[in-house]
Design a binder for these strands. Structure first.
Lengths: 257, 257
DNA sequence: CGCGACCTTTGATATGGATCAATGGCCATA
DNA sequence: TATGGCCATTGATCCATATCAAAGGTCGCG
């Protein structure tokens, strides 16, 4: 059946570095000022938001949202990537998505967090209390509109992922993933294939990949090797993949006839 | 590996019955007036919305949202149930969710519909043009807030479903489904187990169930039979299931230790 | 430069669930 | 009450992917 992945998370509790509240001017220098949510806001709006936020720095492999805990915060990532996941008591894990600079986190929550989040590398983020942000909504309804857009986009992605997890074969999952990752990196526009021979950084471990695609690391490795042997991709090193024939990948990913 | 389900959808194009626009007063009599989205609105707000809506009646097994088509509308279901799904060219299908009276449809869309929707029985619904609804948002920001809540809830559900599809065994999927269906029917509060021996109507075919859970109809049938043999459920007839031991189902569903 | 830890790849085998096949049950219609 | 069609169940077999096992890479550190 499905893998009982060795639990690789040594979640040493890391003292959270509570830096001073950001100011509108510190936002100016933020790497995420013109990405994601913040990009949609005026300087005035960012300033307003900034007053309710805390800047936080986390080291790699830190779990900073824990499923089941009270959902007190929203987060906006400034730098670094994080993995979002749900797990079962026996250690099985499903990664439900990844979030990078500019991504807004915390929408999939009721009063408790319904997922966990862990940094994949050193991460800087802004933390907003959910209650404080409600007041910001009153002031700037545009924010709410923007959040709705974000949520709608995430819904689209998760439905795609359900099709992948429920109905695609291993090789189809890998091909789908590679193309969606290219889209995520904005190597190509949404719905458009990347040009042949583009290179992508792939900061995920094989374990992350497996847990994202509902496979084992062995099957991920074999599928990638297969695509390489067939000349659809090249893998110069573990953390880089070259899409040699995107159209062929697409035909596999979408089971095109 | 995965089923090439015979394509069972004989999607005869059905003439859509465009009844007159609903009025605020006709909303008063609507079965969904006090469910879902509409329940959160005042009579004034409903009246405003009603002026932008069309009442539509559909017969059973009608596809009324087609993946890939231009996304022109939102929908609110007044009566009947519909299935939401994505499919691959070879007929493989993943049902991503179900929607019943009071459910709001169309959030997971960009400029094109990113999923399809099909009635499971005769359905009445209200259709809103996406452009018209933007104007309503200006007038009543509360609507946007409510939609954000809906979207957030759907995100939670789809993440649960990803865990199910990616990492759970057949029997775990069935047990999870039965409990989530009880929640959906409001037989029990969210996160609370139903009392032993509760009976639930189950308007889904085995094919729907299989396509929702990423299994084949044979495996669904075998898993249900297994749970029945073990005394955790009873199946008086195809469209009714009695949860004899919800706690035991939960232990299976969540792989509780 | 060499050692060791960890991750990835590759190979051999096992198995859960898919596929193929047959039977059974239910309902609608005559 | 009989008949046919559709869907569900059950059984037999197969296969894609998991699991188990071993070897190969890579990188940091002494």
């Amino acid at each position: 059946m499905t893998s009982l992945n060795k639990i690789t998370d040594f979640r040493r509790p890391v003292a959270i570095n509570l830096a001073a509240r950001p100011t509108a001017s510190s936002c100016e220098d933020c790497g995420a000022r013109h990405q994601g949510l913040c990009d949609a806001l005026s300087d005035e709006e960012v300033g307003f938001l900034a007053r309710t936020a805390q800047h936080i720095s986390l080291q790699a492999n830190t779990v900073f949202i824990e499923e089941g805990e009270a959902a007190l915060y929203f987060y906006n990532i400034n730098s670094g990537n994080v993995r979002l996941f749900k797990s079962l008591p026996d250690g099985r894990r499903q990664i439900t998505g990844f979030a990078g600079p500019g991504h807004f986190l915390g929408l999939a929550a009721t009063s408790k967090n319904m997922f966990s989040a862990e940094t994949m590398e050193p991460v800087k983020l802004c933390r907003f209390s959910r209650s404080a942000i409600a007041a910001v909504f009153e002031e700037f309804p545009v924010l709410e509109r923007k959040l709705l857009d974000v949520a709608m986009h995430e819904l689209v992605l998760s439905q795609q992922q359900m099709l992948l997890l429920g109905r695609k074969t291993a090789i189809e999952r890998i091909a789908s993933f590679l193309l969606s990752w290219a889209e995520r990196l904005e190597i190509c526009a949404s719905g458009v294939l990347p040009k042949p021979n583009v290179s992508m950084p792939l900061p995920l471990s094989r374990t992350d990949l497996a847990d994202y695609l509902g496979l084992t690391i062995e099957t991920v490795s074999r599928s990638l090797s297969h695509l390489k042997r067939e000349g659809l991709i090249d893998i110069p090193n573990i953390h880089e993949i070259i899409l040699l024939r995107p159209q062929a990948l697409y035909d596999i990913a979408e089971a095109a006839v």
